Computed example of a mutant assay.
Amino acid sequence: MRIPTPLTATLALLTGLAALTACGTAQSDTGSGAAATITVRIPDPGNSGVLAVGKKDGSLDKALAKVNAKVAWTGSAGPFAPAAQALNADQLDIATGSITSGVTSLSQNPGFKFFAATAPDPVGEGILVKKDSGIDTIEDLVGKKVAVNKGGTGEYLLLKALAEKGIPADDVERVYLQADQTAAVFNAGQVDAWAVWATYSVAELGQGEARFLVDGQDIGSDNYSLTAVRTDFADQHPEVVKALYTYLHEGSVKEKQDPAAYLNVTTDAGPQALTGEAKTIEIEFTSQGGTVEPITDADITRFQAVARFYAEQKVTPDEIDVTDHLLDVTELS
């Protein structure tokens, strides 16, 4: 499942979530003598993806109603780091992000666990450069400035690409920026490259002035997309987590088969919409992407490789044991 495009800045997410703090995991009575309805708080999915379709056509509500649950759309989807903080603060129950951001978030007393995984994106993430930049190899980045999001996908992709070529990380200047604030800096030429994922790369590629120097497949990326659940919520409502997983899995299979049906879900105009070449590129990328699946032993090995790499690169002080923060969704009931 592709990470949704943010609708507002990270601050808007946290502000919106804060308003719901007092609600906790409050449940509403469905009537005298009836069981209370479980509310699951999920970031608003925006204009694309499985959850966006589920919100619009009511299919997610219908699926969750079978386990006596309903959705409260809370804030907006965006980078995982602030979402992890919201999970830890009992302001959110479900969030999606990368294993790379996940590893850094796991180093901070996490109150969440991962229960589903989508294989690394082979074509939608990578290192962008301008077509006329003269940067044609990873070695050409030496002495250059590359925009990355600290501790997340961008920093991982850059460090992985450099390590694959035996280039010391300090030979390239990392410019730490939030992903939703980087396009203007990149297009103004204030950085020479941008390590980024599909949420943002598609728009840049669609404008026709940027190209991938390397993509995820070239780098050998282990950057899975993961779905997290607040630990206390999973302990109290495993049946809801299982139902949500089933919905996401089945939806992701359909999305891969017919990507266009999951684009421009609520509007086909304005900054939230994909049009022209960008839409064509997104459809192509989604068709080559993965689907939401249970976490397997093989996945865990790759998760741990990311954690080890981050420790080696001093992104985290120590190697995080990812296995302590995973749920086997196949065993939930």
Rank of each mutant, 00 (worst) to 15 (best):
P4Q: 15
T8W: 07
A12I: 01
A12N: 07
L14E: 08
G16H: 08
G16M: 14
L17H: 01
A22V: 07
G24P: 00
D29F: 10
S32V: 13
A34V: 04
A34N: 09
A35H: 02
R41Q: 12
P43D: 13
S48C: 04
G49H: 12
G49T: 09
L51N: 03
L51M: 07
A52H: 08
G54V: 08
K55T: 02
K56R: 11
S59L: 10
K62V: 06
A63R: 05
N68F: 04
P82Q: 15
Q85H: 00
D93K: 03
V103Y: 07
V103L: 14
V103W: 10
S107P: 00
G111C: 11
G111S: 14
F112R: 03
A116V: 05
A117K: 01
A119Q: 09
V123E: 10
E125V: 03
V129A: 13
S133E: 08
S133L: 05
I135G: 03
T137F: 09
A147T: 02
Y156P: 01
Y156M: 11
L157H: 01
L157N: 05
A161W: 06
A161F: 07
E164S: 10
K165T: 00
K165W: 04
I167G: 04
P168H: 12
P168Q: 14
R174F: 02
V175Q: 10
Q178P: 00
D180R: 09
Q181T: 00
V196F: 08
A203I: 05
G206N: 08
G208S: 10
E209L: 13
E209Q: 13
F212V: 03
F212G: 02
V214F: 05
V214Q: 10
G216L: 15
G220H: 04
N223D: 14
S225C: 11
S225I: 13
A228F: 03
R230I: 01
H237Y: 12
V240F: 06
V240Q: 04
K242G: 01
A243C: 07
H249K: 11
S252A: 09
K254F: 02
E255T: 00
Q257E: 13
Q257G: 00
A260V: 05
L263F: 12
N264H: 05
V265W: 07
P271L: 15
Q272S: 15
Q272L: 15
A273L: 07
T275N: 12
G276D: 12
E277C: 01
K279R: 08
T280S: 14
Q288L: 14
G289D: 15
E293C: 00
I300G: 03
T301S: 10
F303L: 13
V306N: 05
A307V: 09
R308I: 06
V322P: 01
H325G: 09
V329C: 06
T330P: 01
E331N: 04
E331I: 02
E331C: 01
E331L: 12
